[in-house]
Design a protein around this nucleic acid. Structure first.
Lengths: 192, 192
DNA sequence: GAAAATTATGGTCAAATGTCCATATTTCCC
DNA sequence: GGGAAATATGGACATTTGACCATAATTTTC
């Protein structure tokens, strides 16, 4: 019987059953409790991570202690600190669970051998990387050019499902605006 | 005799002379005048571009006509609209020369055949992509978290050489702050 | 179920930022 | 070289935004 990850791979790639089984077999499942850290700034990111269920966030902290969210990783998405993972050096960012989550972990060496041995996994991987680059560009442009209200609108459009799962202060931390500004926007929109 | 591009490849890769010559031979040189557009929003990005001399910028325009700069590309850097290039679809961004510039252009098909035939070019290419991802992340975090003054400081640190080559309004458009705010910051720093 | 923690919202005020305008200076280009 | 364009700066003002505080409502946790 196929587990949820295997169904995901089937739906999004052209990998055959043998490869899917092989990929799955090298992953270690793990549960994360709400607020539990998966990766702490300064640690080395040693695994590739797939989120089966739940919701994670990747965030950086600034000198004054405030947190800024680079990415949300809901079920059926991948996450890691790329730079730390690639170079096996201390991470600049934290990854933590927002909800109780269920994840799969591949040690870097194992995942690399999978990539080396399975061309279709390699191209799928590159597809994900490309998408990431495109959306990052778009997000940067938004961060540079949009008003807080426009940023919020774009977020609502892009992630309608996350709206109800996230506390507002995290949305604010993702958009780069203050919680106050965000509640003001929402209030103003209610009155229309 | 080696031209400037060949010297660059020699210095930054382990490619041998034959490969370097082959890569170079497929590129078309082109001059760009100050303010000339290399790629206009809506066009398809058909080439990979290396900047031999001069300075380009990649920017997006918003509904109100304002410009926001995603990237500066000085001599010895590469540029293109990734998404448009990859998928051969209309570009979301513009690329234009800030200074009179000298560039090399590879048609996409040619560059792909080079990548397919030269493993070391492939890994060099991936190295550049990785770096791009790392700096983009960092830039996003800065855009989300830093004050205008901190953004400016970071820019000065990162690109001291560009400071004197760019008009202030472009630095402002890169940092996502108004020209007014930027001049204020500079005045405040002069008085210290 | 109850205490504790988290979350959403609001008020007040000060500071930061942007827009619009004018002007002096510098640079560009024919 | 000279006219035109681009650039840097400043003033005035309105608006936005954030910081700090309090409070009510909701959710979590044991």
């Amino acid at each position: 019987m196929l587990d949820e990850f295997e169904i995901y791979l089937r739906a999004h790639t052209h990998l055959d059953s043998a490869d899917i089984t092989r990929i799955r077999s090298l992953a270690a499942p793990r549960m994360l409790r709400r607020n539990e850290l998966l990766l702490r700034e300064g640690e080395v990111c040693r695994h590739k991570v797939f989120v089966i269920r739940g919701l994670l966030r990747t965030y950086g902290t600034t000198a004054d202690g405030s947190e800024h969210i680079l990415q949300f990783s809901p079920e059926h998405s991948w996450t890691l600190d790329v730079e730390s993972y690639d170079k096996q050096q201390p991470a600049l960012y934290n990854i933590a669970a927002i909800e109780n989550s269920e994840i799969l972990l591949w040690p870097k060496a194992d995942f690399e051998s999978l990539l080396a041995g399975i061309p279709r996994l390699r191209s799928f991987s590159q597809l994900l990387i490309s998408r990431n680059i495109y959306t990052s560009r778009q997000r940067l442009l938004t961060a540079l050019s949009a008003t807080p209200e426009e940023k919020y609108q774009e977020f609502v459009q892009s992630f309608p499902d996350l709206l109800t799962r996230l506390p507002l202060h995290m949305i604010a931390a993702y958009l780069g605006i203050s919680l106050k500004t965000l509640t003001r926007i929402r209030q103003a929109q209610l009155k229309r």
